[in-house]
C-alpha cells in the first residue's frame, strides 16, 4: 500500500522519535563507559576484588565489601519475599472471599506505589530502633533486608498473581473433578503450572533489590565492611554511589561509574533471564 505525502512525512517523524527512544540505552552505556574509562584503562578488573581496601583516592579499589552487602541483602530479601509474595497471590486468588481479595490486591498495588525514600524513612525511624534494642546499632544488614523485602514483595505477588491467572481453567476443573483438596489443587496443579512465571517474578524482584538505593541506604548504616552477622552495618554498591558521588572527583568518580556499570550489567543479566522464562511460557 502506498502512503500519501502527509503520511510519509508523519512516518519519517515517528521513525526519528522511535530511534531516539531506542538510542537512550546505548547512550547510557556509552556514558558509563566513557566516565569509567580513566580507571578501567589502567586498573585490571581483578584489582576490584584483590585490593586491600576501598580508598579510591589512594588508588585502592576493593569493592568486595559492597558487593557482598548487595549480595546478602538481595538474597535475604528474596528469601523472605518469595514465600510471602506467593502466599499473597494464592490468598487473593484461592482463599479470600471476593470482597477481601479485591481489597487485598488494591493494598498490594498501593504497597508497590510507595516511594523507596518513604520506606527508608519509616525503616530508619521505626524499624531500626526496634532492631537496635535487640542488638545495637540497629541500622544493619537485617534492617536493610526487611525494608527490601517490603519493597519487592509486591513485585513477586503481582507477577505470581498474573502467572496463576494464566493457568488454564481446564487444569483447575480437572483437579476439582478428581476431588483434590484446595491445598492439593494449589500445590499439585496451579503452582507447578505457573512455575516459569513465578521464577520470572522472583528474578525480576531480585533485579529490583540489587538496583534499589534509597531504601537500603537509609537503614543499613553504610559502614564499608565485610558483614559478619545480620546486625552489622553494611554499605551496598548503590548506597556507595549515592553517598560518594557528591564529592568524588577524578579517578574516585571513575571508580564509582565502574560500580554503576557493574550494577547495570547485573540487572541486565537478571532481566534477560526473566524475559527468556516469560517467552518459554508463552510457547509451551
Amino acid at each position: 500500500m502506498s502512503l500519501s505525502r502527509a503520511d510519509r512525512q508523519l512516518l519519517a517523524l515517528l521513525r526519528g522519535c522511535a530511534l531516539l527512544s531506542a538510542v537512550i540505552v546505548l547512550l547510557i552505556l556509552l556514558f558509563l563507559l566513557r566516565e569509567s574509562w580513566p580507571v578501567l584503562r589502567q586498573v585490571p578488573l581483578l584489582r576490584f576484588v584483590t585490593d586491600a581496601s576501598w580508598h579510591p583516592v589512594d588508588g585502592l579499589y576493593q569493592l568486595t565489601p559492597m558487593l557482598s552487602a548487595t549480595l546478602y541483602s538481595t538474597l535475604g530479601a528474596v528469601l523472605l519475599a518469595t514465600p510471602l509474595g506467593i502466599a499473597s497471590a494464592v490468598f487473593s486468588r484461592y482463599y479470600a472471599p471476593p470482597f477481601l481479595a479485591g481489597l487485598y490486591r488494591r493494598l498490594i498495588e498501593l504497597l508497590a506505589g510507595i516511594p523507596s525514600v518513604v520506606y527508608g524513612f519509616w525503616g530508619l525511624i521505626t524499624l531500626a530502633p526496634l532492631i537496635g534494642r535487640l542488638h545495637p546499632p540497629g541500622v544493619s544488614l537485617l534492617t536493610g533486608i526487611l525494608i527490601l523485602t517490603l519493597m519487592i514483595l509486591p513485585t513477586v505477588a503481582l507477577t505470581v498473581d498474573a502467572a496463576l491467572a494464566a493457568v488454564p481453567i481446564a487444569y483447575v476443573r480437572g483437579a476439582a473433578a478428581l476431588g483434590l483438596s484446595r491445598w492439593g489443587l494449589i500445590s499439585g496443579v496451579a503452582l507447578p503450572a505457573a512455575r516459569s512465571g513465578i521464577i520470572a517474578g522472583i528474578i525480576l524482584a531480585a533485579g529490583r533489590a540489587i538496583g534499589e538505593t534509597m531504601g537500603v541506604l537509609m537503614v543499613a548504616g553504610n559502614v564499608v565492611q565485610q558483614p559478619l552477622s545480620l546486625f552489622d552495618s553494611v554499605r551496598t554498591l548503590t548506597a556507595n554511589i549515592a553517598l560518594e558521588m557528591a564529592y568524588a572527583t577524578g579517578e574516585h568518580r571513575a571508580a564509582l561509574f565502574v560500580s554503576g556499570l557493574a550494577l547495570m550489567l547485573m540487572v541486565l543479566v537478571l532481566v534477560g533471564t526473566a524475559e527468556l522464562l516469560f517467552r518459554e511460557r508463552r510457547y509451551d
Binding site: 530511534l19 540505552v25 538496583g211 549515592a242 550494577l263 537478571l270
Partner: peptide, 26 residues
Amino acid sequence: FGRLVRRSLDVLAGVPSIVFGLFGNA
C-alpha cells in the same frame, strides 16, 4: 526495527535508578 526498539526499551525499563542518576549527571 520494531523488535530492536522494543528490546532496547525493555532494557531501559530495567536500569536501576541510581544508574540513571549517574548517566544524568554525566
